[in-house]
Simulated assay, not measured.
Amino acid sequence: MRPVIVVHGGAWAVPDALAEVSVAGVKAATRAGNVTLMRGGGALDAVEVAVRTMEDDPAFDAGHGAVLNTDGEVELDALIMEGRTLATGAVSSVRNIANPVSLARAVMEKTNHVMLSGKGANLFAESIGVPTLPTHALVCEQERKEWEQYKNYDIGVKELFRAQWAHDTVGAVALDSCGNVASATSTGGIRYKMVGRVGDSPVIGSGGYADNRSGAVSCTGHGESILKVTLARLILSHMDRGKAACEAVERSLRYMGERVQGGGGAVAVAPTGDWTACFTTERMAWAAIHGGILHYGLNPREKFKETLK
């Protein structure tokens, strides 16, 4: 089985000022995940590494680049899942944790639960020795300026999402040489969200899903819309019925647009190695590595290739 990794940096109206760093960021994350796969690591390790890379990159709305809620604070959500046993871990409304995707994996591996939220998630992190950062550590200066400029939530979440200052989720899917798939998704949510607001990213079947029998998906876009149609599971239901990854994602995104008028995107990989990165928003930075070729893009129907050295 040839390993595959596919990464996205969020489906939204990425402004030109962030275009180059967003593409560079997803390429770096994909390479990091691919190194893990090439060294014999599993799909779960690969997606965690890829997402951690983006959580550490202030170009993305996750970890160090996360947007601020109404109180000017960072609240983070993340999900990770592996397809062999359907083991899953998730955290929501987490504060002061640099890499919530790794905390989500700890929930999966060290507790009997699937999701921990808020204070409970932070107490769990403390109990297992996960470093807690100072409150200001995850707030980048540019985000503080954006928050000050746009702290008016009256126009509604969908209008915020369509604007070029909305930002969005990061995620990754992978298939390893043993035929196992995995998915991970992480986000800081949407700027000026209500305190405690949780979108699709940490919700199994919405923000992501992984099953060796059908494939792995990581979703991105308008969280409330994704939740309403359980987008990740919807995509895999089409793949279960024999649809190619690209067609499954396109059909599901089209349904979400028609049914609840929501935009978004997803990356997906099938057990056969068939993969895709599709979106209905203005842009989505994405990258994939398969068979020694790095594929990447940002604009609709854009696909560039580089041979790995």
Rank of each mutant, 00 (worst) to 15 (best):
160 L>F: 14
192 Y>W: 14
214 S>A: 11
54 M>G: 06
20 E>D: 12
98 A>C: 02
92 S>M: 13
143 E>T: 13
108 M>W: 00
66 A>M: 10
274 D>R: 05
263 G>K: 15
90 A>C: 06
149 Q>T: 09
72 G>V: 08
85 T>M: 11
271 P>I: 07
69 N>S: 06
148 E>G: 01
24 A>T: 09
200 D>S: 08
173 V>L: 07
224 E>F: 03
119 K>I: 11
15 P>S: 13
196 G>A: 03
50 A>W: 00
9 G>R: 12
270 A>E: 12
88 T>N: 02
226 I>Q: 04
15 P>C: 12
192 Y>G: 01
232 A>V: 04
17 A>D: 09
298 L>E: 05
136 H>W: 13
249 V>R: 04
270 A>P: 00
223 G>D: 02
223 G>W: 03
42 G>N: 08
30 T>C: 15
56 D>R: 14
90 A>F: 06
259 R>L: 09
97 I>T: 01
309 K>N: 11
228 K>A: 14
159 E>Q: 15
97 I>F: 01
300 P>R: 10
270 A>T: 14
127 S>K: 05
224 E>H: 05
247 E>G: 02
215 G>F: 09
304 F>S: 13
191 R>P: 00
131 P>W: 05
37 L>S: 08
129 G>E: 07
150 Y>I: 03
119 K>A: 10
152 N>I: 05
266 A>T: 08
217 V>L: 10
247 E>M: 14
273 G>I: 07
58 P>D: 05
190 I>S: 14
54 M>E: 05
93 S>K: 15
259 R>W: 07
167 H>W: 03
147 W>F: 12
234 L>M: 13
201 S>Q: 04
135 T>F: 05
244 A>E: 07
9 G>Y: 09
113 H>F: 12
147 W>S: 08
218 S>H: 09
289 I>A: 02
309 K>S: 13
127 S>N: 03
112 N>G: 13
39 R>L: 11
80 I>W: 00
209 Y>V: 08
223 G>P: 02
37 L>G: 07
192 Y>P: 00
129 G>Q: 07
73 E>N: 07
